[in-house]
Simulated assay, not measured.
Amino acid sequence: MKRDYYDILGVTKSASEDELKKAYRRCAMKYHPDRNPGDKAAEEAFKECKEAYEVLSEPAKRRAYDQHGHAAFERGGGGHGGADFGDIFGDIFGDIFGGGRGGRQQARRGSDLRYVIELDLEEAVFGVERKIDVPTLVGCVECKGTGSEDGKTETCGTCRGQGRVRMQQGIFSVQQVCPHCAGAGKRVSNPCKSCRGQGRVEDEKTLEVKIPGGVDNGDRIRLAGEGEAGPAGAPAGDLYVEVRVREHAIFQRDGDDLYCELPIRLSQAALGADIEVPTLEGEVIVKVPAETQTGKQFRLRGKGVKSVRSHAPGDLLCRVVVETPVNLTRRQREILQEFEGTFEGDNAAAHSPRSSTFLDGVKAFWNRVVS
């Protein structure tokens, strides 16, 4: 019976990609045949490590294994037991030495690029199309990205067309990308004068980006193949457009919900009123009941942001703020003074519930301090 792949590598089922790679590195170095000549047990352990890592390092295979175990790979006779000792370091040290799995190393693709685009809240909510200018490396027009003046290439003499060279480091034989042809296996015999044999030049590229409605801060849109052109005709990288949403004068966003403050006059709060409230789709009427206090919140369902993922709309939440009147006329002052006079006497507390509760709390506090 086959051993569990996670047990073979000595990791848990929640192990990250980096933890898997480190565990595989330890296992491979421990059981590598060069370190254990003639040891069949070590060779079998090495093959087990390689098989386990080949499955768990690929997300699709890992999901299948987590769900069905070894049965997920029994059909079709495609086993994972065969270990290519010569290429082992291309698997686990590829990010360090530039090696790849099997065959000739392909020329390095162009770098991915990041572009930050600033949007108004309305643009982020409803979507927008924008033209952006991206400074980048593009394929040379003169040589069509080949880097060659006459279109001719020759086999690289350093790696003999393999794209990789082998280096001996102690007991280990390590493969790395050929430094002279960058893994292409070929070299330009007559370099293009415009790009100096690189196959790419600095330029600015204008792109039209379609931003879907509902995006938020930090969301990224991937434009495949719109990054830097690769050297000597290698594939281009990708462009990631990252969204930044400017602050809005009225609304604050939290996920798919919007928040705003609803300022009302003292008289409106006391007597009740129908208040016009702005939304991103136009004004709506909110019925503010009598005796409404500051902090009261009204929820307008479906008036928030329609999610870019679920397409379900959020809500708009309006928090009431009762404003103190300013720039009063003489008559307004007189009316307020008359109004204030009506609160004198034993019944004043009945009209100010929060004030009464506060004062009762203060009295209780001082009584505890004095006692």
Rank of each mutant, 00 (worst) to 15 (best):
A348M: 07
E74W: 13
I88T: 14
R330S: 08
H180P: 07
L239E: 03
R160S: 13
K144T: 08
P325G: 06
V362F: 01
P135Y: 10
P313F: 04
A52G: 05
A60F: 11
P289W: 01
R354S: 13
P235V: 00
V55S: 05
F358M: 08
V188Q: 08
Y115W: 13
C178G: 03
V369I: 12
E129A: 06
G227P: 00
S57Q: 08
V322Y: 05
T279I: 01
E51P: 01
D39A: 10
V209I: 03
H351D: 10
Y24N: 07
H311M: 13
F85I: 15
Y6L: 06
E276V: 10
I92S: 11
R196Q: 15
K306C: 08
K303T: 00
R301V: 15
G302S: 05
V326T: 15
T292H: 07
A52R: 05
S352P: 00
G282H: 03
E228H: 12
E48Y: 04
A71I: 05
V277T: 12
R109L: 09
E228R: 06
F89P: 11
E208M: 10
G183E: 00
R319W: 04
G147S: 08
L280N: 00
D203F: 10
Q105K: 14
F343C: 12
T279E: 02
G345W: 02
S355T: 15
C49D: 08
D34R: 14
F89R: 10
G127M: 05
G170R: 08
D120Y: 04
C195W: 00
V241M: 04
P278L: 06
R196D: 14
L317P: 12
L56Q: 08
V201Q: 02
E123C: 02
K47S: 15
G345C: 00
A312R: 11
G214R: 00
D84S: 13
V125N: 07
R354C: 09
P191Q: 09
A229L: 05
D219Y: 10
S57N: 12
I171P: 06
I264E: 02
G225C: 07
E123V: 02
S111W: 13
V165E: 11
G77S: 08
K2T: 14
G302Y: 07
Q169W: 11
R62W: 10
R331P: 02
L223P: 05
T357D: 01
G100W: 12
L316N: 02
L328T: 01
F89A: 12
G170W: 11
R309M: 06
G100C: 13
F126P: 03
P231Q: 08
G94V: 00
L223D: 02
D87C: 06
V128D: 04
V55H: 03
P37M: 09
A42P: 15
I171V: 15
V116C: 07
F126R: 08
T342M: 13
D18N: 10
D34S: 15
P37N: 09
K22A: 14
R368T: 02
